[in-house]
Design a protein around this nucleic acid. Structure first.
Lengths: 210, 210
DNA sequence: AACTGTGAAGCTGTTCACAGCG
DNA sequence: CGCTGTGAACAGCTTCACAGTT
């Protein structure tokens, strides 16, 4: 596959959500201009992004909502599905599990880990919680490729090392530390304090949108 | 002030954190090359970013850790301080309050809101929780400029309207809906499911870092 | 007439590379 | 010498604008 930018992926994920709402509203077709309006972008950009997935519309009808949804889904998702692990089930871990539960057909959190023995063996939304000592074993056995870090920073690097060793190649990092990872592992940092600082900065000036 | 990109702000926030660690470790000076290494960027970019804050180093010593820290702080922070409100104190709201509590000298969460009467009037880390009906009054009275949305999507737009009317100009949106806001309000979207989808996508290929 | 798909132009942010300095 | 600060080159992404299609 040719290279696709992070921006394009971000937007495709957004288009998918918009499209599924359109479908729910009974729309069968949509023009790039309407899509653009719904996500606050230009129509040219919408068309470019859609080029990346290899789906084509027609000048007369625009895009088929159903067809484009499928095209975007095939592009973004692994057809075999992907499994994720939640590391840490404090308030944040639980919030994310609540929020994502049952929302995605081909991507789901199938295991949770915590080092508090009181939490081990609990079930959250059908997902079993294990001890962090068992990360390597479970991740490997389940074929988990994505991990969400919702723990305090101190332990993070060690756990990440184990995750990677067990086959994880994508990490969603809510920790405030900078992880050291090999080239082929994708890390998305989502430090919440840093996000707040950023918003505070731009709140001080009259500014552009995201 | 001239225009500064979001990327530069993101990195300055990061530099600040790195610098304060260096200070804690007793370092008094630092070169752009070392900074670059610590945040995984090029030295040229570090120097460019620092140009934006208007601080200067010297060829012989690089940058003074103390001086640069102060320069970056003066650039990023409002000297009068800024106040933030937390909207929603479910798991996510509490996680963020725990995590950010006492971590920033010039930016703090001074009020929380929830519509569950059982939560109203509780105190979390010294922060009072009010009913969402009182948002307009409290936000205005306290001079709150930033809000963090940690509620289900349905209510979000209405609450945002009130927040903006009361003077909020920056929103950190953990909701999955796209907010409609006037030009001069800055919105940072942090939908957690979308973040997970993104990581899952890039986890499938051997990829670049953030 | 209005849309898609897309070369090509335009822009923004990043990196190069070097003058100037201690 | 090795560093900073920065003009200039470069790269990547976004937008323009239009040929092709129905």
């Amino acid at each position: 596959m040719k290279k696709v930018s992070q921006g394009t992926i971000d937007r495709l994920i957004l288009y998918r959500k918009v499209l599924s709402r359109l479908r729910a509203e009974g729309e069968t077709n949509v023009y790039s201009h309407r899509m653009a309006q719904l996500v606050d972008r230009t129509s040219a950009q919408v068309r470019r992004d859609i080029m990346a997935v290899g789906y084509s519309g027609t000048p007369s009808m625009g895009y088929s909502v159903e067809g484009l949804l499928e095209g975007v889904g095939d592009f973004l998702d692994d057809p075999k599905g992907q499994k994720a692990a939640m590391i840490g089930i404090g308030n944040l871990g639980r919030a994310i599990m609540d929020y994502t539960y049952g929302r995605h057909p081909r991507l789901s959190i199938v295991a949770a880990f915590d080092r508090d023995p009181a939490k081990v063996n609990r079930i959250i939304h059908g997902t079993r919680c294990y001890h962090t000592d068992d990360i390597r074993e479970i991740v490997r056995r389940e074929g988990i490729s994505v991990a969400i870090l919702a723990i305090p920073g101190e332990e993070a690097q060690n756990i990440v090392n184990e995750l990677i060793e067990a086959g994880v190649t994508g990490i969603l990092n809510y920790t405030d530390i900078r992880l050291k990872t090999p080239e082929n592992v994708f890390v998305e940092n989502r430090d919440m304090l840093r996000a707040l600082e950023k918003v505070a900065f731009f709140a001080r000036f009259n500014n552009r949108e995201e």
